[in-house]
Amino acid sequence: MTKVAMTVNGKPVTGEVEGRTLLSSFLREGLGLTGTHVGCDTSQCGACVVHVDGVAVKSCTMLALEAEGAEVATIEGQAAPDGTLNTIQQAFQDHHGLQCGFCTPGMVMSAAALLKDNPKPTEAEIRHYLEGNLCRCTGYHNIVKAIMAASGQDVSVLAAE
């Protein structure tokens, strides 16, 4: 076991991990941050997306030890301390961008990474960016709509609405 230290949602944390411990496992089991979900074992589903030093990462694809010293952001740290949802989270609720909720943390974290680099993405850009995030409930319609809305675009006139 090796000691690892990082900052998660602004708080310094430490833990003892095996060399093979994934970042997702460290977050879930080591820190009890169970909002990060694991939906596959081939890095396809994206339910485990977190930000490491500001970059969206599938936390099942990174060893906990690789995050030594890093700034990690998870779904638990996205709302304001008083519980107010951030713009993306609120848009997901407003536009019914989630159903069972399992893929949702990864979707929100991916959307945040997208909007940081591309504040007003087109529908096509959003769909392309989300190729690493699977959702089985929504058919993606309301996820794409929510992200467009979160970026300040008018979604009331979407052709298929």
Partner: peptide, 19 residues
């Protein structure tokens, strides 16, 4: 036997729907 080989629909495989 995995999402590598079983083709789950992704966001860019699907359109907006009129319902």
């Amino acid at each position: 036997a995995s999402f590598m080989d079983y083709a789950m629909p992704r966001a860019d495989d699907l359109p907006f729907y009129a319902v």
